[in-house]
Design a protein around this nucleic acid. Structure first.
Lengths: 203, 203, 203, 203
DNA sequence: TATGAATGAGAATTCATTCAT
DNA sequence: GATGAATGAATTCTCATTCAT
């Protein structure tokens, strides 16, 4: 059973993480101070330490929860696309990803900031990146099983897709008026599926 | 004429930047202290301030010089590939990029770290990113002029290529025994040129 | 209403200023470090920064508060002397000034130290000096209105009085056994009122 | 005999002191760095240490030489006035003092800065202040011997005169268009000789 | 539980002094 | 003698963490 205590605890934790997300989005990962987060959350500094062991844990869990959230969305997009052809499924997943970043610039900044090197953090975060990659691998594998795709190293392909998407997101963020998410998603999906090369009739 | 003083100055600056590069690679962008850098460079803390105005300037210039170095290498790879077919030129550029990161794990870490969000820093660094993108745009445009490539938004394509390469580099770094640079380069070049989809005879 | 928080804040600020006063008295204006002041105040260094923005602000406010304190005392002395003859009023003001410095050697040192040249500091402090001068001008003007004094440039006179008093204070500080404040006050008051010249019957 | 070496040495020392005087006048006693002084003097930093043992010695000797210079001028003014009546002699000395400061704003700043508290410095400088006071004492005593002045504590009087003059100088410095030196000198001389009080026929 | 004042280790920066050239 | 690059101790300021209320 979930006690009232646990409910309150979870509520507070989320409020703090949300505040941290906003502050990190605004000031960057290392520049976000515990003071900033407490003020943004509307609680006293000491309170943070009732729910988290350290500043690092706040940052860690904030990034973790945000990435989990993104992955869940992408998963839903991929799942819903379960049976359709690969290129449409991919397009849908990418659209979900682009749209998510458009809605969450703060999150985006944090997401990229989280790439900042730190041996410890990277190791702890890499599990999430793996999940993201595994989603894409699953999508590719299922396309291959249906004969839609070439036989290829699906993990390498997944990584390439994730990276290409990431940089397109970066561009979207910097642009005053980014194209609709669907546009970038279709573009990338097409390049990836049919390539850049002009079609030649296969001998 | 280049005076002796200027030579010494440039030499010292480079030594300090090299030290900073190693320290940042080891400890991360924000964790690298002025003490660390001085110790690594084998000079006194005050000496750093003879050549740089502040810690921030050291970091800035270190990243800048390293990225310039990479871009110059990539440019050489692309230039040398001037006349060849697009897929080979792309492969050569990507090989150069992958090889560079293999040789410079420290730099790699710094390069990704430099993605850390900071409005100021990002803006100042973005010029270099643009140069990288422009290189790829040039490559694509020349492929298109020769009729090798479809008509497409070459900037979007360049960004996607850069991102895909970046994440493959990431994987290389994490792997104990990454495949040779040529392998990843050929893989990505092929995916990008001819797409993931199984070949179907058109119409 | 004055909240408890404000009371505590004011109390702490005063304690820090008092500590700063002692340290500056002991070590001089520029030699007084933040560490010194914190130690003297019996608080941690960081605490100072909860109440003051910078070392400079501590010094500034410390001098300012001390001078305000002196001016208030002198004003009380001058006010109390409101109706009496000029020479007695002046004597009372000077006695108050001398006595104040006797009680506050530290302050005295700081007061003179505050003369240290610094365009900014001087300008900010000059308001207080003006108040001091204005007090004396008021005293002189009221003496003139009562026909006790010659018609003269009362501001120049006030400045001369302030300066003369200052240097007598300096001497008091250096002497092992200075004469009672009343003695110097009477001396200066007499010189200023009736002059150094032997009396001649005016033809 | 004065060797060439000594001539060069004295020349260099003076050049450095002059530079120090200007820098201190511009930046204040504690803010004037060895770098500043060397740059102003047009020599290398190390050179300063060939002629002075430390920064402190430079400051010390600079102040000392400047004050000696002033005292010599005042002495000349007082000497020249040897036989005249006291009030005229005093007026001449004060005129010389005011004029000197008008010509040397940098010096003035330094002179006041030198009042900055520092037990050591004060003691070393006090000899010069004594000389200044002794000059005035001499002037007063000679006036008394001629029956021009009341019988009074001539040292106290000398100190009061010095202080009054100092603050009038301060005012001159701050004013855009100070009155001619003679004006302030006459004013102060008159106040001091015949007092502020309206003349009453002595019963 | 919640608070927020206090802490103090740690970071960046300055500058008097030295010393190899 | 003269130089000025190099030094590193000393200084100011920041901020994660604690703890008495």
């Amino acid at each position: 059973m979930t006690t009232k205590k646990q409910v309150v605890e979870e509520f507070r934790c989320r409020a703090i993480r949300d505040a941290a997300l906003r502050v990190v989005g605004r000031k960057g990962l290392e520049k976000a101070t515990v003071d900033d987060i407490a003020r943004e959350a509307g609680v006293a500094k000491g309170t943070l330490y009732l729910y988290f062991r350290s500043r690092d844990e706040i940052i860690e869990k904030t990034i973790g929860a945000a990435v989990d959230d993104l992955l869940a969305r992408l998963q839903r997009a991929a799942d819903g696309a379960g049976e359709g052809p690969f290129d449409e499924a991919l397009e849908r997943v990418l659209t979900a990803e682009f749209a998510y970043f458009d809605e969450n610039r703060d999150f985006f900044r944090l997401y990229f900031a989280s790439g900042e090197y730190s041996e410890d953090r990277r190791l702890r975060q890499s599990r999430r990146y793996r999940l993201h990659i595994d989603q894409l691998v699953g999508l590719i594998e299922s396309g291959r099983r249906r004969g839609e795709l070439k036989s290829l190293d699906s993990e390498r392909a997944a990584i390439a897709i994730a990276g290409a998407a990431r940089d397109l997101i970066l561009r979207r963020i910097h642009e005053k008026e980014p194209p609709p998410p669907e546009s970038d998603a279709r573009f990338l999906s097409e390049v990836l599926c049919s390539g850049l090369a002009a079609r030649r009739v296969e001998g």
